[in-house]
Each structure stands twice: as structure tokens, then as C-alpha cells.
């Protein structure tokens, strides 16, 4: 079997985000996290619930097993049985995330999506992030607007920012005082490269190499989940 590509390593790292999650709603945003969540359900986490991206919960074989319109998503997040993987225009070392705007909010340099559900997600249930282009533009010393709540703020009793997966590495918040820590670098990436592309000091313990997807995972990904290889457009090898 062909060597795993960088995109495939990222999909497997996103699948691993859901390890141990059990029977909860996985809400991946973006292609690579979506493939990761579906891969997790087909392998280690068969009880995960996934929607079609609109209002229907689908089984792994595509059967409608439930109804989940937007109004019900807010119920699920308040109930807490959910793990969201959001994007991030900016992230800081405490896990604060910005998808609102760049610059001053009253008159931004760049208007982005808005808060969306980030404030509610981050104070209600586990939240992870996916960053397809790891750079100093994203990993900044301080975000311009706090959409997703980080560890230096009072996120309350359900606050749980889990991990960040990027095109270069996997990070968590296991550094001193819940600061961002380098967990693993993807094959072919050096620690120095990640440090160079990060605009703040990363905590580093024993940095591993991100695991390669195994043959069964690669077969599922290539033949079933993404036969057209759209993942390769989101993450270049």
C-alpha cells in the first residue's frame, strides 16, 4: 500500500481526538476533521453520533437514525454530550480562539464569520481545533477577539479544550498552567519547524512522532470515505 500522505496522517490524528468519547455527538467542521470523525466511528469509536452536516443523524452506512435540526444542536451542547472540532483564524497559548474578526471589533481590518457557536461550545463541552496551515498568523501571542474560551479565562466547570491538530503537529494544553504543548510532529516535520511557525513559546516535553494510519484505516479512507482524495487539497504533502 502507498505510503500515507500528510493529509492522511492529519485525518488519523483527527480520528484520535475522539478516542474514548463513546456515545456522544461528534461535530467536526471542515473536511479533514469530518473524515477523522467518520474514521473513528468505523474503527475505535463505533458509538459516535454524526450528522450529515444539515439536520439528520446518519449511521455509518448512511441510514437516517435521528433528527438534529439546529435548534436541537443547542440542546445537545447545553446537555454536554458533544465534542466539536472547530477551525480557528487565531489561537493563543492558552487556547483562546478567534473566528470573529481581525483588528478592533468596532471596525475590523478583516471581518470573519462572527462568534458562531464558539462561546457556547467551549464552556459546555469538549472542544478541539483543526488548523490546516500552521503559521504565526494563526498561532499568535494574543487573539484579537476571544470567540472560543481559553484556559486563562473562567470557562466554568464544563470547559475542556482538548487538542489542536495542524498540518504539522498535534498539540494539547498540558504545558505549565494549561498552556499549549507540542505533543507530536507529523512524519517529515521537525520540532524546529513547528516552533518557527508558532508565534509564542510552546511547552515541549517528550515530543513523539504522530502515528501513521494503519492499513485498515488507509483502506477505509481511500476506498470508502474519500475516494476522490479531496483531503489532499486541504493539506498538501
Amino acid at each position: 500500500m502507498r505510503q500515507p500522505t500528510r493529509a492522511e496522517v492529519c485525518v488519523a490524528a483527527c480520528a484520535d481526538l475522539f478516542a474514548g468519547d463513546g456515545e456522544i455527538l461528534a461535530s467536526p467542521m471542515g473536511l479533514v476533521p469530518s473524515l477523522g470523525a467518520r474514521l473513528a466511528r468505523l474503527t475505535a469509536e463505533p458509538d459516535l453520533l454524526l450528522s450529515d452536516g444539515e439536520a439528520t443523524l446518519l449511521t455509518a452506512s448512511g441510514v437516517a437514525e435521528g433528527w438534529l435540526p439546529y435548534r436541537a444542536v443547542f440542546d445537545v451542547l447545553a446537555h454536554g454530550r458533544r465534542h466539536v472540532v472547530m477551525g480557528a483564524n487565531q489561537l493563543d497559548r492558552h487556547g483562546n480562539q478567534n473566528i470573529s474578526c481581525i483588528g478592533r471589533h468596532e471596525r475590523p481590518d478583516r471581518q470573519l464569520l462572527g462568534f458562531r457557536g464558539a462561546p457556547g461550545n467551549t464552556v459546555n463541552h469538549r472542544t478541539s481545533y483543526w488548523v490546516p496551515r500552521h503559521s504565526r498568523r494563526v498561532f499568535v501571542p494574543a487573539v484579537d477577539v476571544v470567540s472560543g474560551v481559553g484556559y486563562d479565562r473562567d470557562g466554568g466547570r464544563f470547559h475542556d479544550v482538548h487538542r489542536v491538530v495542524t498540518n504539522l503537529a498535534v498539540l494539547d494544553f498540558g504545558g505549565p498552567g494549561h498552556t499549549m504543548r507540542l505533543v507530536s510532529v507529523h512524519p517529515g516535520v521537525t520540532e524546529a519547524e513547528v516552533v518557527e511557525q508558532t508565534g509564542f513559546e510552546l511547552a515541549q516535553g517528550d515530543v513523539a512522532q504522530t502515528r501513521l494510519p494503519n492499513e485498515a484505516e488507509l483502506a477505509l479512507l481511500r476506498e470508502e470515505l474519500d475516494p476522490r482524495g479531496l483531503r489532499e487539497r486541504e493539506v498538501r504533502s
Partner: peptide, 13 residues
């Protein structure tokens, strides 16, 4: 009452 908004910049803005 709602939990969403706590800790974020929603309240500050």
C-alpha cells in the same frame, strides 16, 4: 440564563 458567553469577548463587546 445561559452558559454561552461566559469567559468570551461576547460580554466585553
Amino acid at each position: 440564563p445561559i452558559r454561552a458567553g461566559l469567559g468570551s469577548d461576547v460580554l466585553a463587546l
